[in-house]
Nucleic acid binder design. Structure first.
Length: 193
DNA sequence: ATGCAGATCGTCT
DNA sequence: GACGATCTGCATC
């Protein structure tokens, strides 16, 4: 079952935790690809020095201020894209970064997009999974309640969910220590332990 | 297994 | 003009 708007209109930490074990799908002309979300991070509005929304609304971050359930993609280090889910209601600027997937559908297509043959190398990091799913900067603002990219419930995925510090945000002072990264404990497709 | 440099550009100061 | 919510390849242990 595809997640509906109601799911996304809640706070970012709740959504980040609940997205673990859900399946994210892209359905593009060249094929359908999907994976089970095993790693996420929450970025929490104006109180979180690590979040893009920390310094308020700009051309890039305006999407954070809209309703939850839309795709926020941004370019990092000039060469990779990161895929995020906007969380919470209008004017509460929160988002969840999708950091790793366990590949499910369209594995051959993902291998071609990534130019890798090892399953573990397809989606074990935010830049990797964005490439594997065929996400481009044109995905900025797409509705997750639509048909090109969406998230659905799964059956038969069991994991203990634990929280840790977020990755690569050492610049963020105290916020670098907040336990706002969520992982499926022990899963082999995590970006790191 | 761990570490480091390089790639490369949009965004904000 | 500086730097980043990253990944890769190569070097060394």
């Amino acid at each position: 079952m595809k997640l509906t708007r109601k799911f996304y209109l809640r706070d970012g930490l709740t959504i980040a935790r609940e997205l673990i074990g859900k399946k994210i799908v892209t359905n593009l002309p060249e094929g359908l690809t999907s994976g089970i979300i095993v790693e996420t991070e929450a970025y929490m509005g104006t109180i979180d020095a690590a979040a893009h929304s920390y310094r308020g609304k700009t051309e890039r971050t305006k999407l954070f201020y809209g309703a939850g359930g839309f795709v926020y993609v941004y370019m990092i280090y000039g060469m990779y894209l990161c895929t995020n889910v906007v969380a919470n209601v209008e004017n509460v600027p929160e988002a969840v970064l999708i950091r790793a997937l366990q590949p499910v559908d369209g594995v051959d297509l993902m291998k071609r997009r990534r130019n890798k043959k090892n399953l573990r190398e397809l989606c074990s990091g935010p830049g990797k999974l964005s490439q594997a799913l065929g996400v481009t900067k044109n995905f900025y603002g797409l509705d997750l309640c639509g048909d090109e990219i969406f998230i659905e419930t799964t059956e038969n995925f069991q994991a203990d969910i634990i929280s840790t510090k977020r990755i690569n945000i050492d610049y963020a002072g105290d916020a670098a220590n907040y336990p706002w990264r969520f992982i499926a404990a022990g899963n082999k497709f995590l970006s790191r332990k």
